[in-house]
């Protein structure tokens, strides 16, 4: 085709190229119009948690007393509340390594992720193991009636 292109043929081929280009663009646009709703459909809606501070229930509070820790949902997130002597602290219970739920080892006073042996101290800092970041901290407020409130504002 290219060998036989002459000045006379040029308008015809460029018109053909233009039509081909239009066809290509419309195919891409058509594919995009099919793909876009599917992509939006697959992306989950944002979580609609209550968002506010969470009061520990009586069950959760007694569990905290007995086991020295309890895991509770706060704004749709897992939070570990730890009771050490006179201090109560709360951290995200999601290990920063691979997202397993952490637990508390009262004997060693460390927060421990059993999946890959990550260890955190009671300030959320990494002591050992592969977690790349500290656990984020949650604010703990003791109510005058003895109730415990966990809120998302970082302490």
């Amino acid at each position: 085709m290219e060998e036989h292109t002459t000045t006379v043929d040029k308008p015809a081929t460029s018109r053909r190229h233009f039509i081909d280009l239009l066809l290509g663009v419309s195919v891409v646009a058509w594919l995009a119009s099919v793909a876009y709703p599917i992509i939006r459909y697959l992306k989950p809606l944002p979580q609609t948690g209550s968002g506010g501070p969470t009061h520990l229930t009586r069950d959760e509070a007694s569990k905290l007393e007995q086991k020295q820790f309890v895991i509770v949902p706060v704004s749709g997130q897992r939070v570990i509340v730890v009771n050490v002597q006179d201090r109560t602290c709360a951290f995200s219970a999601k290990c920063t390594h691979e997202g397993c739920t952490v637990t508390y080892l009262p004997g060693q006073s460390v927060i421990w992720c059993p999946c890959h042996d990550g260890r955190f101290d009671l300030n959320g800092r990494v002591l050992s193991g592969p977690p790349p970041r500290p656990l984020s901290q949650y604010a703990v407020n003791r109510q005058p009636d003895g109730g415990i409130v966990i809120s998302e504002e970082r302490a």
């Binding site: 397993c100 990494v126 592969p130």
Partner: peptide, 26 residues
């Protein structure tokens, strides 16, 4: 809301990836 427990392992054919993940520093 239950903590993970020791000995959580994937199927045997994913174990090498699981172990490799452990070997990388933070």
């Amino acid at each position: 809301l239950a903590p993970a427990y020791p000995g959580i392992k994937p199927e045997w054919y994913f174990l090498w990836e699981y172990q490799l993940l452990k070997e990388f520093p933070p």
